[in-house]
C-alpha cells in the first residue's frame, strides 16, 4: 500500500510541463490534486517513473469563451458549487457535482484529473459525455480537441497519448429553453456510484425537443442512450413516458455483475434512475416554461 519509486518534477510553466511529459513519454504522468492518481499508485496499479507536478500552473478557472463554457483542467471540484455560469446553463452538471467525493476530496481534486483517470462511474466523465463536451489536450506538438464520446475508451483508459495532458474542457452553451438533471445511487455518500443517469432536454410548447441521456454503470465507461433520446422527442413535459423509457433502456444494456451489485439489480436500478431523471428534468422544464 505504498507507491513504487518515481522521480518528481515541479513544472514551472505549461511549456515546461509539456516538455517534461514529452521527454518521459509512457513513463510520465501529470499530477494535480492526486485524489485519483495517488490511490492508484499506492495500490501499484499505476507505476509512473516520473511525476510532473502541475499544481502551481495557472490552469484553473470557469469562463465563457464564445459559444462554450471553458473549465480549466486545474479547477477544483468545490468551485462548481457556487459558480453562477454552471448554475445558469448546466443544471445537470450542478446536480452531478453534489455526488463527487467528500469535502476534502472536492477541495483538492481537479476536473482534469478526474477526466484523465476515467473511473467508469465517476461523475465528471458522465457530465462531459452528456453535454458533448470537448476535452482539450496539449502536447509539445500542439493542441487537439477530442469529443467526450470518443475520449473514454474503457475503464481507466482514455484517448490521451503519451506526452499529452488535459488542459481544459469545453461545454457547448445550450439554448435558453433547456434544462437537465442528474441522479446517482452509491453505497455510501460520496463513493463512486453504482449507477447514474443524466438528462438534458430542450423544450417548446410543453413538449420535449432535442434530448440527451447518459448512463454510468451500464458499461465500462459512460454511454449515451440514443434510443431514449429519440423516444423522448415530441413527448409532453407533463407525461414524458419516463417509466417506459426506463424499461426500454434497461432492456438494452448488459451491466457488470460484481461484489457491489448483480447485473439484474443494476438493470432495475438504472430503469428507476432513468425514470426519476427524466421526470426531474421535465418538472424543471415546466417550472421554466
Amino acid at each position: 500500500m505504498r507507491p513504487a519509486s518515481f522521480e518528481y518534477h515541479r513544472a514551472t510553466s505549461l511549456d515546461h510541463a509539456l516538455e517534461l511529459l514529452h521527454e518521459f513519454g509512457e513513463e510520465g504522468r501529470p499530477i494535480a490534486g492526486g485524489q485519483s492518481l495517488v490511490p492508484m499508485m499506492n495500490f501499484r496499479l499505476a507505476r509512473p517513473g516520473h511525476l510532473v507536478d502541475i499544481n502551481r500552473l495557472p490552469l484553473g478557472g470557469i469562463e465563457i469563451d464564445g459559444q462554450v463554457l471553458r473549465i480549466g483542467a486545474l479547477t477544483r471540484h468545490e468551485a462548481y458549487f457556487n459558480d453562477p455560469l454552471i448554475a445558469r446553463h448546466f443544471p445537470a452538471f450542478l446536480d452531478a457535482v453534489h455526488y463527487i467525493g467528500h469535502p476534502t476530496i472536492r477541495r483538492n481534486g481537479s476536473i482534469g484529473g478526474s477526466i484523465s483517470h476515467a473511473d467508469p462511474t465517476a461523475e465528471l466523465p458522465a457530465v462531459a459525455v452528456l453535454h458533448d463536451a470537448d476535452i482539450v489536450v496539449r502536447s509539445v506538438q500542439g493542441t487537439r480537441k477530442i469529443k467526450a464520446v470518443e475520449f473514454f475508451l474503457s475503464a481507466y483508459v482514455t484517448a490521451i497519448e503519451p506526452g499529452e495532458m488535459v488542459v481544459a474542457l469545453e461545454f457547448p452553451l445550450p439554448p435558453s429553453a433547456s434544462t437537465g438533471s442528474f441522479i446517482e445511487q452509491s453505497e455510501r455518500s460520496g463513493d463512486f456510484g453504482t449507477a447514474s443517469i443524466g438528462i438534458t432536454l430542450q423544450f417548446a410548447g410543453g413538449k420535449i425537443g432535442k434530448a440527451a441521456m447518459v448512463c454510468s454503470g451500464a458499461d465500462l465507461f459512460p454511454i449515451r442512450a440514443p434510443e431514449i433520446e429519440e423516444f423522448l422527442v415530441g413527448k409532453a413535459l407533463a407525461d414524458p413516458g419516463a417509466a417506459e423509457a426506463g424499461r426500454i433502456f434497461a432492456a438494452s444494456i448488459d451491466p457488470v455483475d460484481d461484489h457491489i451489485a448483480s447485473a439484474d439489480y443494476r438493470r432495475g436500478l438504472i430503469a428507476e434512475l432513468t425514470r426519476r431523471a427524466i421526470e426531474a428534468a421535465c418538472t424543471r422544464a415546466l417550472d421554466k416554461s
Binding site: Y8, I31, G34, Q35, T104, I105
Partner: peptide, 19 residues
C-alpha cells in the same frame, strides 16, 4: 490521516511529502 495543509484539511495519504 486528515491533516491541515496551509490551513485546510487534506488527506496526507494522498499527498507526497515532496509536494
Amino acid at each position: 490521516c486528515t491533516v491541515h495543509l496551509d490551513g485546510t484539511p487534506r488527506l496526507s495519504c494522498l499527498t507526497f511529502a515532496v509536494q
